[in-house]
Structures are given as structure tokens and as C-alpha cells.
Design a protein around this nucleic acid. Structure first.
Lengths: 325, 325
DNA sequence: TTGTAAGCGTTATCAG
DNA sequence: CTGATAACGCTTACAA
């Protein structure tokens, strides 16, 4: 490239970066050759020299889950806006896969990480990174981790909103279909709910997947007549599973039983009946986490501890109603 | 690192790569230092030396669209399986953004690209790349592009399936709410449909977004009584929009009008009534495109022209029925 | 205003 | 069996 323009690589570099003045004639000549040849500086070489890649990693368990897809969009938007690329690390809840990606991170292919795959086995793996590498936890916090940026929705507040809502409607006995008990997001939803509901709550533990909502609901139904008048599912996916089980059992929502979810994924408003749920700002979580992270990454600093809790919103739709008399 | 183990960098490299025999004692010592220090070779330096990054780019318009999210998952799975990472390039249908990402590609940050953002303005931008850079087109082909790998679902066949289905039910007049006319996928669905339907078809052109389905349906309804007994939307999103418009107009599906979509996104089976649609193997499209692409990338070859058309499947649900007598 | 040379952290080649 | 050296393609002192 330099040869083609009859100048040194240095000059080409400076023409392109504007890092030092270049004679206008020379610059023009260089630019014309650059565009004729379609030359673009090799980002690897540049990154090696600069000690940074302008790319961040996004670790999530499942990109086809609309919640994470929204979050990913927020991350990508923020990153793009600040001049960073995003490398997609889909773990499928698989620890081998997560390991591989953590390796990629430690090989300094990325300048920072937005970590949204908070399943517990991740902890030890993360430990090695945190404090030495810029990480922002999104959506899920990881217990016992050192200094980190944390951005989550207000899970506890959301649970509280649902609890109040059902109590106000007149429900006194509720069934909770929770997510994994070792996830803070899951337990926080539950504790918020129980605190506000004040009535009798029976818990069944699932895993945030649709199938577990279905199965748990089936099990609850199998014991005979359902004792509770309301069901609070740990997330919308589980609620949708529970809805199917309820329908199969000939129970109608909300006449026979009220049902509420969490997340407000797109499907929640599409099912019949549309689901009462807690809107979680997935996009904002991703966006905020990324903006926070990059603020430090750009200055070559390891981020400090800080927590951002984003507000949630109760969406009352048609799946909840007063209990049958 | 090398110093800490008392050997040369060369030896460290060989211990880690296994590229040449190393004395077992030396190797053990090196490995212990490696793990104590948590050393991982810098991928940038490695990539610079090797002339490849083991990362591919995935260009899509919108990761929060479930179709693309599924496709992305297929891409990521295939890539991961073959030892590649995926960098997420979400264009938001924005050409500036696409340009930035194409720049990233031309800077050789990636070894290849899966391109699934086939909006027409992309063509000239792609031209500069194709033939010099490994690209696989997924889901959407771009007209007039040179040698490329193309993987799409059988859009035309899918349209045909819907056409036959509606004709068999007894419909003779249909309204088509199409996607952008300059997308092959969209026009192919339409031509397949018209060919098989054999009846009278009125077309209205939208843009594959939910809102356009709603608007187009509204417009059709505004002209007075709907002349057609069946509506074929270019994709499920548009069908869901149309469904809302129909509902608002007091028309019920499928009693008053039959409605079919395309894609079989998750929401399609969740809406009420569940949508008759064409299942498009989004995951497989992504997976196939990536597998094909990497086959050449791994050998440092530019891929030849080849086309893979993946079969689609008609999912008959409750939104279609014989026309009212 | 421009060029030369060092160095970023690897791996391949060539020696020993 | 192991080490020195060059090279990957850039950017940035340092020189001219």
C-alpha cells in the first residue's frame, strides 16, 4: 500500500489517522490510492500495537430467548455507538462452551465483557477474571464475586407488584412456580412476592424454561383439586407452560385461576388470555451495562463496584381477575 | 511468561500447541507456570502471525426478531463447533451501521461472513467484498452478486403450500400482504402462492414488519366490505398485525376470514387463534450457511457459487378454514 | 513535512 | 530437544 502511493507506511498511517499533519498534496495522493485499492488497515495489527481490540464479548445463555435477544440488542446498540464491536458468546448453559469463551476473553481478544449468563457454576471461572479484567454483570448478579459493575432490573420490586396486585384482587392462596433457587433474580422475585402477598404461598422450583412451567403445573394439578386461586410463575416462559397445563386440565384463566408471569416477553401479550406480567427492561439492562462498562474500558481502567437497578412495571392484562367466590 | 519458566518463547509455544516434541520434564514445568500465571496466548498476535482470526461475522438486521435470533443460534452453534467465534453485526436496516461493519470485515478482523441482511442497498457495498472474501448469503439472496454461497429456505415452495391449502379449503379470492418487493424471499413467496392458488389475488406491499400488516389490513378494510375470504401475509409478524386489524374491525378468524402467515416464529402458535403458517428452518439456514462457509474458510479458499434450498413445512393451525358459505 | 526503526506477542524457519 | 531470529502489519518515538 505504502509503496503504491510512493510514501512510507508511516505517512499512510498518519493520513488515515490524522495523528500528525501531512502535506495536502501527499495526503490527497495517498487517499486516492487507498480508495482505489480499497485498503483498510488490518485491525489485528492495529490492535496488537494498541493493546486493545475495540470489541467486547457478550456472554448469554441463549440468544433465541427473546429476553436475551432484547438485551443483546441493547448491548450492541451501546457498543456500536461507542465504536465497539460485540462478539456473541452463546453458552447454551453449557459450561464447556462457557469455558471456551472465557478462554477467548483471557486471550485478550476483547476489551471487556458483558456477562449475562449467571448460572452458578460460572462463579469460579469468573473469579479468575474479575479484578483483572473489565466485566459488567447484566441481569443476573453472581454471589460472592468481587468488585463488579452490576445492572439488573428490580426483580424484588417486580415480585412485590405482582403480590400486591393479586392480594388486592382478593386472592389469599397462591402457587409460585419459581426459577432456579440459586439465581438471585429468581429468589428476589419470590421474596418480593411473598412479602407483598401476605397470604399463603406454596412454592415449586423450576428452571425458567417453558417445559418446567408445564411440568410443575401438571404436578400441582395431579394432587387433586388445586388449592390455590392464583399462580405466579417465575417468568413468562414458565407461565406459558403453566397455561398449557391449565388448559389441558380444563381450567380456564382467569375464571378458575389467575396467572401472572415475569419479563413481558413479546409472547406474553400474544397468548390467550394475554398475560399479566412484569415488564423487565431487557434492552435497557443491556444498554446500561454496556455503557457503564465501556466508560472504564475506554480509559483502560478496571471498573469499580457499582450497582444499577432499573425500574420494572406491572402490566395488568387479562390473565388475572378476582378469585371465583 | 517464557522467562518465568526459564525457557524460550518458542518452547512455550510448542508445549502449548504440541507442534513439536518437548522434553517431558520441560513441558511439565512450563505447564505448571502457565497454569499458575493463568497465561493464555494473545489471540491477536497469534492471528496476526497466522493470518486468520478464527472469528466470522454475522450480519443481520435485527437480533431481537426471533427469526434472526434462531438463525443466529444456528450460526453460532456451527461456528463454535468448528472452533470459530461469531461477531454480531446488527444493522438495524441502517446503512451507516452496515458500512461500519463491512469496514470491520475488510480490516480482516474476521475470516468470513454470514450475511443475512439482504436489503437491496447492500448490493454495491457487498460487491467490493465478494470474490475476494469468503461470504455466505443466508436466508436472502442478493440479486446480481457474483460467486457466492447461498442458503435459503424454499420460499417459493412455501408460498405454493399456502396457496394449495387455501384453494383446497375452497377459497377463490385472496388478499396478499407482501413484504418488500425487492427481496427475493418476499417475491418468491408471492409467486409460489399465486401459482398454486389459481384464484383471484389482490396484492398490497408492506415491509415485513408487524405495523405494516396492521396498516395494510386497515386500508383494505377501509374500502368497505372485504372482498376476499382469505389473507396471506408475507410473514408472521405481518399476519399478527393483520390479525389485530381484523379483530378491531369486528371480523373473526377464521369464521369471517382465513389468515395465513410465513416463518413459524414462536409467536405464531401463541396468538389466538394459532396461526396457520409455513415453518421456515431458521436455525438450519444459519447452521448450513455457516458450515458451508467454514469449509472453505478453513482451507483459505474463497467459496464457489452454490445454492442450498432448505425444505419448508406447512403448519396448519386454527386461523384457516373453509370460507363462509 | 517525511522517513527509519523499534516493538506489540505470537509462530515458523533455521541452527545447534 | 531447544533456542535465536524473522516476520505478520501496524503505530509511534526519534531523526532528518
Amino acid at each position: 500500500m505504502a509503496a503504491a502511493a510512493g510514501v512510507s507506511p508511516t505517512t499512510v498511517s498518519h493520513v488515515l489517522s490524522g495523528n500528525r499533519p501531512v502535506n495536502e498534496r501527499t495526503a490527497t495522493r495517498v487517499r486516492s490510492v487507498v480508495s482505489r485499492l480499497g485498503y483498510v488497515p488490518a485491525s489485528l495489527a492495529r490492535g496488537l500495537q494498541a493493546g486493545s481490540t475495540s470489541v467486547i464479548g457478550l456472554l448469554i445463555p441463549d440468544i433465541s430467548n427473546t429476553f436475551f435477544a432484547e438485551l443483546a440488542k441493547g448491548v450492541e446498540d451501546a457498543a456500536h455507538h461507542l465504536g465497539y464491536g460485540v462478539i456473541l458468546c452463546n453458552t447454551e448453559f453449557d459450561s464447556d462452551r462457557e469455558d471456551r469463551y472465557l478462554g477467548l476473553i483471557r486471550s485478550r481478544f476483547v476489551d471487556g465483557v458483558v456477562y449475562a449468563a449467571g448460572s452458578p457454576p460460572s462463579r469460579q471461572r469468573l473469579d479468575a477474571l474479575v479484578g483483572q479484567f473489565p466485566i459488567a454483570l447484566a441481569d443476573e448478579e453472581v454471589e460472592g464475586l468481587g468488585a463488579t459493575l452490576i445492572t439488573t432490573a428490580d426483580h424484588e420490586g417486580g415480585g412485590r407488584l405482582v403480590g400486591e396486585h393479586l392480594r388486592t384482587l382478593g386472592h389469599r392462596r397462591a402457587l409460585m412456580l419459581t426459577g432456579p433457587s440459586d439465581l438471585r433474580s429468581s429468589s428476589a422475585r419470590g421474596s418480593g412476592f411473598k412479602e407483598a402477598f401476605e397470604g399463603e404461598v406454596v412454592e415449586r422450583v423450576g428452571d425458567f424454561k417453558e417445559e418446567s412451567g408445564y411440568r410443575l403445573m401438571k404436578e400441582a394439578l395431579a394432587t387433586g383439586r388445586l388449592e390455590q386461586t392464583a399462580v405466579f410463575a417465575g417468568n413468562d416462559l414458565m407461565a406459558i407452560g403453566a397455561l398449557a397445563a391449565l388448559r389441558e386440565a380444563g381450567l380456564s384463566v382467569p375464571q378458575d385461576v389467575s396467572l401472572a408471569g415475569f419479563d413481558d416477553i413479546r409472547a406474553a401479550s400474544l397468548v390467550f388470555p394475554p398475560l399479566t406480567t412484569v415488564h423487565q427492561p431487557a434492552y435497557d439492562v443491556g444498554h446500561t451495562a454496556t455503557t457503564q462498562l465501556l466508560q472504564y474500558v475506554a480509559r483502560h481502567q478496571v471498573p469499580p463496584s457499582a450497582r444499577h437497578t432499573l425500574p420494572v412495571q406491572l402490566k395488568v392484562r387479562e390473565s388475572t381477575a378476582p378469585p371465583a367466590p
